[in-house]
Simulated assay, not measured.
Amino acid sequence: MAGADILQYYAFLQLPLDSTLEDLDTRYLDLTLDLTSKRALMYATKEEVQEQLQYLDNAYAALLPIIPLGADDVEFVQEPMTMRDLETARDRMETPRTTIADHWHPPLPENSPSPETPSPESDYNDDETVIAPGFEVEEIEGDIFEVPDRAVIVHSVNCQGVWGSGIAAALRKAVPQAYSIYRAHCKRAKKPYDLLGTCLLIPPQRQDYAHKKDKIKDGDDSKATFPPESVVFDKRRWIACLFTSIGYGKSNMAINNPGKAPKETILINTRYALEELRTRLETLGPSNFDERTSWKTDDEKPGEIWSVRFSSGAFGVPWKETREILEQEFAGFERPWTVVEKNMQASEQTEEDDNGKSLGSSDSPALARLRLTLGKRSVSA
Results as ranks from 00 to 15, higher is better:
residue 5 D to T: 13
residue 18 D to W: 14
residue 25 D to M: 04
residue 29 L to C: 09
residue 29 L to P: 05
residue 30 D to A: 09
residue 34 D to V: 03
residue 35 L to Y: 11
residue 41 L to D: 07
residue 44 A to T: 08
residue 48 E to Y: 12
residue 53 L to H: 10
residue 54 Q to S: 13
residue 55 Y to E: 09
residue 60 Y to I: 01
residue 68 P to T: 13
residue 69 L to H: 02
residue 76 F to N: 09
residue 83 M to S: 13
residue 90 R to T: 07
residue 94 E to R: 15
residue 95 T to C: 15
residue 120 P to A: 14
residue 126 D to P: 00
residue 129 T to P: 03
residue 130 V to N: 02
residue 130 V to H: 10
residue 134 G to R: 06
residue 136 E to K: 12
residue 138 E to R: 10
residue 145 F to G: 08
residue 146 E to F: 03
residue 147 V to E: 04
residue 148 P to T: 01
residue 158 N to Q: 13
residue 167 I to L: 06
residue 169 A to N: 15
residue 170 A to N: 07
residue 173 K to R: 09
residue 188 R to G: 08
residue 189 A to G: 03
residue 195 L to K: 08
residue 196 L to P: 04
residue 198 T to N: 12
residue 201 L to C: 04
residue 201 L to V: 07
residue 204 P to H: 08
residue 205 Q to T: 01
residue 209 Y to C: 00
residue 210 A to I: 03
residue 224 A to V: 06
residue 224 A to S: 11
residue 233 F to Q: 09
residue 234 D to Y: 03
residue 246 I to C: 07
residue 247 G to L: 00
residue 250 K to R: 11
residue 265 T to L: 09
residue 269 N to Y: 05
residue 273 A to Q: 00
residue 273 A to G: 01
residue 275 E to N: 02
residue 276 E to Y: 04
residue 277 L to T: 00
residue 280 R to G: 03
residue 280 R to P: 04
residue 283 T to A: 02
residue 284 L to D: 12
residue 290 D to H: 07
residue 297 T to I: 02
residue 301 K to F: 02
residue 318 P to L: 02
residue 319 W to H: 07
residue 326 L to C: 00
residue 326 L to I: 11
residue 328 Q to C: 04
residue 328 Q to A: 05
residue 329 E to R: 01
residue 330 F to W: 05
residue 335 R to L: 08
residue 336 P to A: 02
residue 343 N to M: 11
residue 351 E to P: 12
residue 352 E to A: 10
residue 356 G to D: 05
residue 366 A to R: 06
residue 367 L to Q: 07
residue 368 A to Y: 06
residue 370 L to E: 15
residue 380 S to W: 08
